[in-house]
Design a protein around this nucleic acid. Sequence first.
DNA 1: CTGTTAGCGCTTTCAT
DNA 2: ATGAAAGCGCTAACAG
Lengths: 329, 329
Amino acid sequence: MKKLTMKEIAKLANVSQSTVSRVINGKEGVNEKLAKRVFDVINEVGFVPNKAAQTLKQNQSYIIGVCVTETYNPYFVELIDTLESVARNYGYNILLHNSKRNPILEWESMENFISRQVDGIIFVPTSDYNFEKISKLPIPVVSVTQTHEEFHSVGLDHYKAGQLAAKKFIYTNHKTFGMVGNIPDDKFFGFRDTLAENGFTFQMKNYITIKETSSNSYLIRQDIEDYLDRVTNLEFTSVFTTNDLMAVEFVKAVEDRGIKVPEDISVIGFDDTILSKMMGISSIHQPIEEMVKTTMKLLLDRIEKKVSSKKVQIKLEPTLIERKSSRLK
Amino acid sequence: MKKLTMKEIAKLANVSQSTVSRVINGKEGVNEKLAKRVFDVINEVGFVPNKAAQTLKQNQSYIIGVCVTETYNPYFVELIDTLESVARNYGYNILLHNSKRNPILEWESMENFISRQVDGIIFVPTSDYNFEKISKLPIPVVSVTQTHEEFHSVGLDHYKAGQLAAKKFIYTNHKTFGMVGNIPDDKFFGFRDTLAENGFTFQMKNYITIKETSSNSYLIRQDIEDYLDRVTNLEFTSVFTTNDLMAVEFVKAVEDRGIKVPEDISVIGFDDTILSKMMGISSIHQPIEEMVKTTMKLLLDRIEKKVSSKKVQIKLEPTLIERKSSRLK
DNA sequence: CTGTTAGCGCTTTCAT
DNA sequence: ATGAAAGCGCTAACAG
């Protein structure tokens, strides 16, 4: 195979270059015989048109820029995979970047996207550091996973997810509650508020903080061990974690210390990934397929119909998948 | 932010468009004052050059096409992530495709890569179905993970990996051996041959076949359960699995039937992913970083220096990471 | 040192 | 119905 241009195809088929273009793009009104001759040549030599030239000419690349914050958590991998499939069905390719929770890299990715002429951007924000700049980008942007007022966005209702976990623990007769997470977020507020509404108070000393920089199992485990070393014994019988990685490491850490799950403590994770499935840990399910389809539709509507209007936020419903890590107290 | 062109920057800075180009590309011999004026305008308005135009003009896109076969196995995710990091350090972006083990999709991806003017391709083959066509592509191609004579390729030495597992089992006094995998491959041959060299014969009835289409934990588990239902009791005390997903599902399946790991049976997995780490399963380690760096260097050498020559295969050394799933019989 | 100009491969208008 | 020609944004050869 050699790299070919339409000009050369035109010569081989003995037609003009614009005719080749018409044939390839299925424009009406090309003589059937000519069209066939062109197709034959194309198939024979394996010609594919140069998308850089098409992009330049049409001012549209059929690429969507996707920027995630990490891939260590299988949740994001499933998200990316689904995005790729759905985008492909619409005739788009994905340009994938990983900001690694670094706002500098995040902005670099955005510049790269613009530079590559992507038609739209789907991203998981690192923080609000670049919010203003990103919201001023000259192409449609949708943030995914969590909703933000600054963007079109679709995400799970994290507040409700917290409520769901709290309610489950309360209904199964737990009286003391813990959480594992980074800095308190909507999941925490939902959890805490629901406890409060039911006459319980969340004790901040039962919040196990995982450092923002603890991005893998080993580091998460360290943070949990540090907590466990400090408190000597756990003052709660139920715990809700911010993602499945934390749930897994929490379960392993306490079991190593002779505390039984779920006999001594109930655990509910978050994301419902392969990890919680494998380990039999209860988890809040993320409807990834629905989330991605909604996201893509939102984005393509802005790209194709140029619907701009005001920012829309779409919150999806969490559901709890019960496994063997949680039970009646 | 608005989409801008060099022409508009030129007007704003009151210079010619080629001067803007020179400044952006750091060419020598531009008056400092002019350069500063141009930079100021660029920074003020946030201009980034149109890469589609650059690609068209320079016939080089600084994109590398990457096509993997799946992302359900965390091994591939780590591979992709590392590829992205290393490529970025060299100034390249990654265009990611997933063939899902489907040769039709694989070839579509290759055509897309050519169409997008990627400078080179790194891929994990689905099968040998497209080998001939892919080896004729007009740009450098490297296959990764396993070596193939048809391509420049870098991969682990799978035969040696099989040897390693077999030796471990033999040295720890096992007398009966099993394997879990798709159709027999180099890992199997290394395993079987090493047993033979030590006076053992691998019994094919101890080979648990996982269907090629069983691409997730649930399906793998089904295949294992089918086998277990059929044989009533296991005729081996040691088993080597083709990847960590299989190892995990095997361990869970037998433990559900009251067989203890490692007391009753020793298990060695493959890939040394987060899964085996989490579950404490011994596994053959893949040196991903080394593999990716080697791959990228091989590819960039062909891209930049146009070193063509004959195909080179690079095989990396496997190592065994011992955890608690294997022990002395 | 800087500006003018041609041309990368394509789509699309215009002319025939 | 088909071809000729302009132009997308950029780089680089050429001219001054």
